[in-house]
Amino acid sequence: MVPTAYYLILSAILFSMGVAAFLIKRNIISIFMSIELMLNAVNLSFVAFAHMWHQIQGQIFVFFVMVVAAAEAAVGLAIIIAIFRTRRTLNVDQINLLNS
């Protein structure tokens, strides 16, 4: 028997690592991957709660999150390719057109 709190704490660990990676990474692809890590962490807590309440709705929610994450990854990576075409860099510090 694993306490549900352990699953939620694991989810919190993964989520905060995603937040830290999002803030300290400078490569735009790494930043995008840390967003995926945060989505996965939240999915884990959805599944843990679904299991705790013996309900299917949490798993359905995770299914929709996966669909939206797939769409988001496709569009986001296309945007990254477009940015690389015009700016020739992947460093977010050099993509500062709105900062001048």
């Binding site: 306490p3 549900t4 709190a5 704490i9």
Partner: peptide, 27 residues
Amino acid sequence: AGFPGAAAIFCLLTFVFLSERKALGAS
């Protein structure tokens, strides 16, 4: 900002989950 912020989120969530551990039960 990143590391303290992430640590704060983690500490808050862990505190809430551990203090509600009885209500959350086991799986």
